[in-house]
């Protein structure tokens, strides 16, 4: 998983838009997200629900901002690796239409 993270742009910002509203539902250790705009159901696991929760107010955030938000509640390990992983998640979430580049 570490491969490819090196190309991530740490300054790239993402935000949640009201148009990308989801209805979440937690089933044991996974979370379902019903995406209203597309009618698609996404099945996600940690840290995606936590990332989306940090972005709940719609403010544009970088992977670094999100790292700081998550680090308040979780031990994320070495910062570089964690930020790279967060950036990769943001990229994936953007391709699913759950967040958008700010």
């Amino acid at each position: 998983m570490q491969q490819g993270f090196g190309t991530v742009d740490a300054q790239k910002t993402y935000r949640r838009d009201p148009a990308d509203r989801v209805t979440p539902c937690t089933l044991e250790d996974l979370t379902l997200l019903y995406h209203h705009a597309s009618g698609q159901t996404h099945m996600v696991i940690s840290p995606v629900p936590e990332l989306l929760a940090c972005m709940a107010d719609g403010v544009a955030m970088t992977a670094g901002d999100l790292h700081d938000c998550l680090a308040r509640d979780y031990d994320l390990g070495p910062r570089d690796a964690a930020e790279a992983e967060i950036a990769a998640h943001l990229d994936a979430l953007a391709s699913l239409g759950l967040v958008r580049p700010a």
Partner: peptide
């Protein structure tokens, strides 16, 4: 079934 289906099915599963 859209959102109604999502709500009904998640309720059933839970």
């Amino acid at each position: 079934a859209g959102e109604a289906g999502f709500r009904a099915l998640t309720r059933f599963v839970a």
